[in-house]
Design a protein around this nucleic acid. Structure first.
Lengths: 333, 333
DNA sequence: CTGAAAGCGCTTACAG
DNA sequence: CTGAAAGCGCTTACAG
């Protein structure tokens, strides 16, 4: 038999309303009454039934984090940070792996899973911004990453153009002249936004951009970085530096360079993006763009809760995550 | 306004009971009726309210995965596999980060979060097996990892003694004689169980175990492995091989060896445990014990659901996860 | 096979 | 400040 609110009320000799008031921290309760109720809760080891509360209030204090893949270190670290940020505010995070599939992302945009969750933090990779912008979602959504929704949804993201510009400029300042990019892509995602910053930095430095040095690949994993690096090394004129659009690509590229017996950074300098722990312990350690993940997590959760709390109609916000360039061995001997 | 079951019933011209029957796949419904109801559901874009269903049925189809840390690659990969395995069966996984804190682990053993979840997959690292064995939990629990509960709870785990034995024996077979261990620990956790296999292999090979070669460290992260390796290198007689009790420790050790200018495996051979992706792409790539994570995930979820479905009183089960030793560059040039 | 009704455990107006 | 009662949206005996 499970203890119910009414059991607590009976034992404390008060009404259920009073017990509810104590649990929900409402005012106008004498400390004496509060103590009596708390003693009864303690004695019966009572815990409120989440389903009943959620059914009645229309709020569950659950939010969803929809990411492509939780086994990917950047998302794993981000997920950990977001879970912690949410827990601090009494919110539970439910992680949904979309695997980048259009159907799964559509489900997210539709508001997800019946009515359990109160809102969604969403990192889309397949759905187009136009499609996202059309969303008439039942639940508040905060977008993460490069894709925006034409200002129709809240969003928290690094200024990727500027960050890619800084990363590339760092390579230029080292005297590198044939600077490749791994992870470029069409559309409106990471691959195209970061390419913008990369190209901008090249032309600011007076360097011509060579299409042969822009590698697209099929994904953002280590194996994709390794394969792209192999292609670059097979070029008549291989690059003397590579900017990889995330750390996993960079780690894969580093693996290929090691297999080829090339020295990093002497032969080829490498920069990544994300600052996952893996890169900090690698030999050579990886120079990378380091977004402030705690900041990102805190602000994404805060923004979403704000929206859930009822500021549904206020203007959409676009928060820019602070970042630094961490210079390590892969560019600095 | 949210669509309710009764709205669907009204539109389809049937009773709520019939709609409920269709949704829950009950028998005795003419295909004609079913089609009518499904059309109404489609037209109204109806989704059942999870809270209401869960309140009424006493089942939510949510399970919790309680792990120390989701940013740790092994747990991230495991979490991804468990989420996938659960999703296949229509179950949603809620990830709870205990951070190895006793209070958080106690909450897990108490059954967690009011009554939302149906059961728990739990990877404890602080709570003692004795304490776990005393658990009178409200919800079914499946244990992961070395700690058992004196047979009082279901458990899915690698045979860590045997796996550690295999890893160490592999090093012996390479002709290594001073084989260190990183990650040893007291108590009943990973650190003590794997040490048992390590020592057993040494004595089977006729090697004396040297206490100076057993490093405890403070945790199972890269930095702990790096620090332990530094200690080993400072020894009058440093080791010619190291068995690290997880891959993260091994990656940290590899970093220290690279900094010291030592060659792997020529000077020091290194073996890990877990087979995270990071180790496969490292230079040198990491020899490691590779547990079948898909198998683990499928069976942990299956066992838990079986228990939830009502086999509460049947005998506790202890499933052994298959593993292989993946020989890579860190021991094989 | 279907319909009307009770009840899961909360929260919240509504009276007092 | 407290008590009695309605209702959140389902599922499920109970009659028919």
């Amino acid at each position: 038999m499970v203890t119910r609110l009414s059991d607590v009320a009976a034992r404390a000799g008060v009404s259920v309303k009073t017990v509810s008031n104590v649990i929900n921290d409402y005012p106008h309760i004498t400390s004496q009454t509060r103590a009596k109720v708390e003693a009864a809760i303690e004695a019966l080891d009572y815990r409120p039934n989440v389903s009943a509360r959620s059914l009645r209030k229309g709020r569950s204090d659950f939010i969803a984090l929809a990411i492509p893949e939780m086994a990917s270190p950047y998302f794993a670290e981000l997920g950990a940070a977001i879970s912690r940020a949410a827990k601090k505010r009494g919110i539970t995070v439910l992680i949904d792996q979309t695997e980048g599939e259009a159907a799964a992302e559509k489900l997210v945009l539709d508001g997800m899973r019946g009515q359990l969750i109160d809102g969604i933090i969403f990192s889309p990779i397949t759905t187009s911004p136009a499609r996202i912008g059309q969303t008439e979602t039942a639940k508040p959504i905060v977008l993460l990453g490069e894709r925006d929704a034409g200002g129709r949804l809240d969003r928290v993201a690094v200024d990727s153009v500027q960050a890619a510009y800084d990363a590339t400029t760092h390579l230029v300042s080292l005297g590198r002249r044939r600077i490749a990019a791994i992870g470029v892509g069409g559309g409106a995602g990471t691959g195209s936004v970061r390419r913008r910053g990369y190209r901008k930095a090249l032309s600011a430095a007076g360097l011509r951009h060579d299409p042969a040095l822009e590698l697209a690949g099929t994904g953002y994993h280590r194996e994709d970085g390794a394969a792209s690096m192999r292609e670059l090394l097979a070029l008549p004129e291989p690059p003397d530096a590579v900017f990889c659009f995330n750390d996993l690509l960079a780690l894969g590229a580093l693996r290929t360079l090691a297999e080829a017996g090339l020295s990093v950074p002497d032969d080829v300098a490498v920069v990544g993006f994300d600052d996952i722990e893996d890169g900090r312990f690698h030999s050579p350690s990886l120079t990378t763009i380091s977004p402030d993940k705690e900041w990102l997590a805190d602000n994404a959760v805060g923004l979403l809760l704000d929206r859930i709390a009822g500021n549904g109609e206020s203007e959409r916000r676009n928060l820019t995550v602070p970042y630094t360039l961490q210079v390590r061995e892969s560019t600095a001997g």
